[in-house]
Amino acid sequence: MSECIELRYEVSSEDFTRAGEASSNVKKKLKQMGVSPAAITKVAIAMYEGEINMVIHADGGHIEVTISEEEIEIKLCDRGPGIQNVEKAMQAGYSTAPDNIRALGFGAGMGLPNMKKYTDEMTIDTEIGVGTTVTMKVKL
């Protein structure tokens, strides 16, 4: 098995000033690890979107990042309400964000579509009332 490094980040809820901390930390590490600038952009953007989503919709959660020689895997795990309709959620512009979140400039309905756009693979495991796990992969 190829070597890898696992990182774990807690994402606190309803704190926009801290949202993005995990993704910028990962970005710094990837630069130090000599990962290509293009792959770093993908990870940074997709992970930031995911982090914001966890704050907006799911009262936070945690993120597991696994970096191997072949790929970077980002697992966003929350204990939020779950996604009612995954297909709809994946449509650009569809959003269930409440007004107070939209007032902050978020909730444009581009979160999940952007995450998919910027990663090579994305899967969503969700259960109503239990939580959602989004797994994204960026190939190196």
Partner: peptide, 8 residues
């Protein structure tokens, strides 16, 4: 990359 993973 191998070295980077190890060092990180």
């Amino acid at each position: 990359m191998r070295d980077n993973i190890h060092k990180m």
